[in-house]
Computed example of a mutant assay.
Amino acid sequence: MSRTYRILIILAGIMGADGVILAALSAHGSNAALLTPASSMLLFHASAVLATVALAERRLIQPTTGMGAAIGFVVAAFLFAGDLTMRHFTGHRLFPYAAPTGGTLLILSWLVLAVAAAWPRPA
């Protein structure tokens, strides 16, 4: 297993843990309007990262392009969830347009994953 795959799996584990923490905070706190979608994005995309790594390692998708999608999922989910979490706890944004930037990058990452599946794979 490559070092990149291992790092992505570690990051997916952190994303999953953070998603569960945010879900618990949203369930037990007041005004969870921002924490619930942040939790969902982290949990959903942690699974997407793990699946993408598994597909790339088995060469069911073009590995380099697939890793680009997985890295995009990680960065984008942290931008999206980080912005919402920051707004919840501090009232300030991570930076202007962080959540929409993360959302746009998530869309692009899913499209990159589709390209990785359509791209000719090495034998």
Rank of each mutant, 00 (worst) to 15 (best):
A70T: 08
G29L: 08
A38N: 07
T52M: 12
Y5V: 08
I14Q: 02
L35Y: 06
A98H: 00
L11Q: 04
L22R: 04
M41S: 05
V74W: 05
V115C: 14
A116E: 11
S39Y: 01
L94I: 02
L79N: 01
L94H: 00
A54D: 11
A114E: 09
I14S: 06
S39F: 02
T85Q: 03
P122N: 14
I9V: 13
W110Q: 14
A51C: 13
A48N: 08
R59M: 06
F95R: 05
D83G: 00
V112T: 15
W119V: 12
A99Q: 00
L105P: 11
T85A: 11
A56C: 08
G103A: 02
I14D: 02
R121Y: 05
A77W: 00
G13S: 05
A98M: 02
T64W: 08
L42T: 03
A33W: 14
L42G: 03
I10K: 08
R6Q: 13
Q62R: 10
H28V: 08
F80D: 00
A70Q: 07
T36I: 12
S26C: 08
M15L: 07
A116Q: 09
L25K: 07
M67F: 14
I10R: 06
V112M: 14
T85N: 03
G29V: 07
A51F: 13
G68Y: 10
L43F: 01
D83K: 00
A114C: 14
S109Q: 13
S2K: 03
A54N: 11
T36P: 02
S47V: 15
A123D: 15
L111R: 10
A12N: 07
T104D: 03
P120A: 09
T65R: 08
R121A: 11
